[in-house]
Write a protein that binds this DNA or RNA. Sequence first.
DNA 1: AGTGTAATCTGGAATTATTCTAATTCCGGC
DNA 2: GCCGGAATTAGAATAATTCCAGATTACACT
Lengths: 142, 142
Amino acid sequence: MISLEQQKAPNPEDFPPDLEGLRMTKQRREVLAVILAERDHPTANDVFSRAQTRMPSISLATVYNCLEALVSHRLVRQVNFERESSRYCPNLADHCHFQDEASGKIHDVNFKKGVKLEDILELPQGTEISHLEISLKGNFGK
Amino acid sequence: MISLEQQKAPNPEDFPPDLEGLRMTKQRREVLAVILAERDHPTANDVFSRAQTRMPSISLATVYNCLEALVSHRLVRQVNFERESSRYCPNLADHCHFQDEASGKIHDVNFKKGVKLEDILELPQGTEISHLEISLKGNFGK
DNA sequence: AGTGTAATCTGGAATTATTCTAATTCCGGC
DNA sequence: GCCGGAATTAGAATAATTCCAGATTACACT
Ligand SMILES: [Mn+2]
Ligand SMILES: [Mn+2]
Ligand SMILES: [Zn+2]
Ligand SMILES: [Zn+2]
């Protein structure tokens, strides 16, 4: 498991051949390394450009394939803001996203301790949540 | 203001000439009436088909224009689920959306009384939220 | 090492929701 | 009734993503 505290860019070669049941190909390693290297929520195109610097032959279709594989194996999170292009996030902790309207930057926002969604939403008995996305926009303080 | 409890489809002619500062044209009335008539979160295309039954000359571009006008004047809410096409909702109360994976249906979900977002999220001092979207998927109970 | 097989990768075409454009029509005020 | 701006329209354009079909690679077994 890759720590989020990790500061320097991970070396793609360091990933085991099989992560969470996903066979790690050269391209998947590179895409994952790109996403872990910076926590700026890049788009597929951003990932493509960055991956190309070390792997000039990678194709955009492959980046999409890898992202889909990584997301479905829960190694990366897909982040959506309204109808903008999807972004990708290496933070696997429960969190949501805030886009600062002035800078365009997307910030991770954690839930306060002990908060459960069932506590704040009027969900009928027996509801099971399989997917949740919370997206905020505005002026991010500090 | 149009009540949400309203059961029968509203007559487009009943809307005043100016709603929330938005000039109500024939097409905008029709689009709004379509959205108020059923609470099923139709897509732009759904709205287009329905509007055509009473107004065969309306164009899809106009439906998009009207939706954008209605949304930006807060008469209608735009609802997004991941990368699916946008849907439109007449419920102006604070609420979020739950898509039942079995039926595909989208349900409105209210917040419990007295819940404030600041209570559950770790937002830095001075943050101002201008837009918020919460989308859930799973098995909707009941 | 060599072979078979399935998975993956690739470049380009296709898809599709949405936006843009430019011409026409409409509307409220004079 | 006329003017000017706003709205509508059909169709073209855009852009993110997905699909496709052939080439490449990786793994399993000999
Ligand atoms: Mn700010
Ligand atoms: Mn159900
Ligand atoms: Zn994140
Ligand atoms: Zn709704």
